[in-house]
Design a protein around this nucleic acid. Structure first.
Lengths: 332, 332
DNA sequence: TAATCAAGGCCGACATCAGTT
DNA sequence: AAACTGATGTCGGCCTTGATT
């Protein structure tokens, strides 16, 4: 910076003013400085700046597990927000290994704080997160959590899985189905549990005994496929799948075993990933706008950073999309 | 830091040594310092550190366009590398809008350099990238590009689309197909063009006139679907789809129009996304290991940062996965 | 008085070198 | 000599104060 100043015949302080816009810089001086910057190929050092300034225009993002449609879209949404706000995202991605995850999370957060991020978005359900937050974050930095369960003390945003499940269940019930089974996602997923809760409530409200939950284990199509290989097809007429991928795998297994959809049973998922409408048959599903979710999370952390005030929990509303995989129960 | 020193009864300098591991710190002093750190909840400020140290342990990642299976997996791979190497990723995601993209890219790179990243990974084909690199990066920071065309002057890594295409074409030809059509991805995509090149070479080597390219427009299943609505089905017996998603959409359109696969025609894609094996029918495809691609890109930029030497271009090898969507040409 | 610019201190760490047991 | 520790200067900006036109 002093080089630039020297070349432009002014002090380094004036060059600083040139960049920050603080104080006055003469028109002619401004030109000379700009000229010197170009000539020298000078680039301001954000690090030095951030040492002084409290805000770094940087948000930390923590994600866990493989990117599926939902999490990738969520990240896209956050990135869009960051782009618009001219903020940099520092992303840390943790695998879902057997390693002591809480420790990893702690280390990751610790480093983000070390880098003086303005805020942190945690885009995953993490076991014992509250404890980590209390112990590690200690209000040093605002945190927004994208997670199913309303964590009491933290700002949070989430796709409304319960309503999504309710929409699907209502649809299946209206079609006349009574033997409905829930194909679950990961057991430790709030989203899956919320959808399951919707399942149970819908069943009990309809006065139908709930069927045993079919466990997928994770959100992948493979899990759905494996579930479909083991399940007893005579026990149900409709499947509520925790997400579209599970539904896809399940349908493939059903096909292999000689069952046709929706003639033999109906099936519906959650998410409405772009591929869902091209499944065979096209999948009925509850659409979730993950891009808006990510965007919302980013906006939320920003507001929190700006105002310092706690933010109201946000639920991203689902929308039922009816396609060919669900049909009225045939009276056979 | 000086607070910690004061509390532990030592100078700030000794505390610094405590963290960096440089020089000697007495056993007992070490304990006192650790104690003070815990008591004060002190966290070292990486920003201040980076002001001094040349390496920031930070890599910038630039991505463009929506996350599909490939790009999401690539990001996962890079993140895994970063996690292992204890490096932070600063990600910037640009939408594929009509905005003057080169300008956006330039701004994004400029900011990364301002943040003093150790290196930059550009995970996309970008129009006029070489110019931007020359003009903006100016050797200030190493760059690795994930892109289809061997950019002469830059380190690069890419999935071997040409071989992938060749594998698929060889498979289709061996099945007896001669009327094969290529369902293209984005016109400005090197990957799609490489696959198309493989198509043309395979056809000419087999002494068969190439059929007109069917344009998808982008990589999405919707593009494949639209193409499938317009195409003349009597003109081919096999389809080489630029990727799995295009194939999915195309199959859905074919189904709608009363064609069955692989009886009426065969189809194969590229990628082997996890869903591909559950398509109806299961999709033959050339598997690409995007996770390894991302991992390789990260390792490459690290080596470049460490050694300063140009890295050899890496091609990630594909692998043919034969499933039910392709069958021998029936002699009708 | 208003516009413009310079000097010096400081942010929080680290390197160097000198000093102490 | 070896193990340890402290003082000083520096990284590259920004802020405050004060001087100059």
């Amino acid at each position: 910076m002093s080089d630039v100043g020297r070349m432009a015949g002014v002090s380094a302080q004036t060059v600083s003013r040139f960049f920050t816009g603080t104080g006055y810089v003469g028109e002619e001086t401004r030109l000379r400085i700009q000229h010197a910057i170009d000539a020298l190929g000078y680039r301001p050092n954000r690090i030095a700046r951030n040492l002084h300034v409290s805000r770094t225009d940087t948000i930390g993002v923590l994600t866990v597990g493989d990117f599926n449609y939902g999490s990738a879209q969520t990240l896209t949404g956050m990135s869009a927000g960051a782009q618009d706000a001219d903020v940099a995202l520092i992303t840390t991605h943790l695998e879902q290994g057997e390693m002591p995850r809480p420790r990893q999370v702690q280390v990751a957060i610790e480093r983000m704080i070390s880098m003086r991020v303005d805020g942190i978005i945690i885009s995953a359900r993490i076991e014992g997160l509250e404890g980590i937050l209390v112990e590690t974050v200690r209000d040093d930095v605002p945190v927004v959590v994208i997670a199913g369960r309303p964590d009491t003390s933290v700002d949070s945003i989430v796709a409304d899985s319960f309503t999504a499940g309710s929409l699907v269940m209502q649809h299946l019930l209206e079609l006349g189905h009574r033997s409905i089974v829930y194909l679950a996602g990961p057991v430790d997923s709030d989203e899956s549990r919320e959808r399951e809760r919707a399942y149970h409530r819908a069943m009990s409200r309809a006065g139908i005994p709930a069927l045993p939950i079919v466990a997928g284990g994770d959100w992948t199509s493979i899990a759905g496929y494996n579930a479909g290989l083991q399940v007893e097809f005579s026990s149900f007429t409709a499947v509520f799948a925790g997400n579209d991928e599970l539904a896809l795998g399940f349908m493939a297994a059903a096909r292999e075993r000689g069952h046709s959809i929706p003639d033999d049973f109906s099936i519906a998922g959650v998410d409405d990933m772009p591929e869902a409408r091209f499944f065979a048959p096209a999948l009925t599903t509850a659409r979730l706008d993950f891009s808006a979710l990510g965007r919302g999370a980013f906006d939320m952390i920003r507001r929190r950073v700006d105002t310092g005030e706690p933010q109201d929990r946000i639920l991203v509303a689902p929308q039922l999309v009816v396609r060919r995989s669900t049909a009225a129960l045939s009276t056979r």
